[in-house]
Write a protein that binds this DNA or RNA. Sequence first.
DNA 1: CCAGCTAGATGCAAAGTACACATAGCTGCA
DNA 2: TGCAGCTATGTGTACTTTGCATCTAGCTGG
Lengths: 127, 127
Amino acid sequence: MPENTPELKPRLHGEMLSTSLLAFLKGWNAYGYQLAQKLAAAGLPESDSGTVYRTLRQLEKAGMVSSFWDTSESGPARRMYSLTRAGELFLSGWIDVLQNYQKILHNALESLVPPEGESADTEDAAS
Amino acid sequence: MPENTPELKPRLHGEMLSTSLLAFLKGWNAYGYQLAQKLAAAGLPESDSGTVYRTLRQLEKAGMVSSFWDTSESGPARRMYSLTRAGELFLSGWIDVLQNYQKILHNALESLVPPEGESADTEDAAS
DNA sequence: CCAGCTAGATGCAAAGTACACATAGCTGCA
DNA sequence: TGCAGCTATGTGTACTTTGCATCTAGCTGG
């Protein structure tokens, strides 16, 4: 029992951030600032805007998205991103991973039968 | 088009690893080696066993799990983990986050209508 | 003129991670 | 009796990712 409550402030990052960005780019283009706002409005854990920009650059380096400077509108130039074929493929592959993952979480919460043959070592955990 | 294909080798880590471990601990106790095996058999991306052990210790430090040495069986001593109340709460909170996240991914792949009022900047992305 | 917003980015310390390796108990078997 | 191999848990270290602060630069409203 930690007395100095660690005050966990969750942030969206890693593969969940990457794939959320790819998802937002499916079907239309967008730029970083816009994507950051969508994330903030999406009901997901917050994400740092610096991290969003860096993640987009990484996705570009990995070939998942491509970008160009858009100076057609007034205001600061925007780096417009679009999803590549590789990005689409990665995204749909990721959804399969997700399906598995979510299945695991739900099995754990709903069915309370030990997974396989060897009986649970200590079954006193089910309070 | 990167010529040195980055060869992304996906690994399970971060919050997805943590929550998978918590899920496997729901309802019965288990030890690290066992959990690592379950993860490997679960159809999720591989995870490094060293990372699994370290993650379990972190989860304990955060109060999500508790542990004790189990020397009742023959063989090397096992550190048995069990889910705490805090871990259960975190897990069910995480599932809500997941639901949102998955909804975003699915919306992106199925409905191809721009999200809100302001028309898509360049809608040539839908190949 | 300049505060404040949009838009993108970087420096740096801290945290997280992969891979290799270390330790120790036990089993099988020759 | 020796020792390879499995179970089980870790650690060392280099590398990567992240959070937070800060920076630049264009534009807008007053």
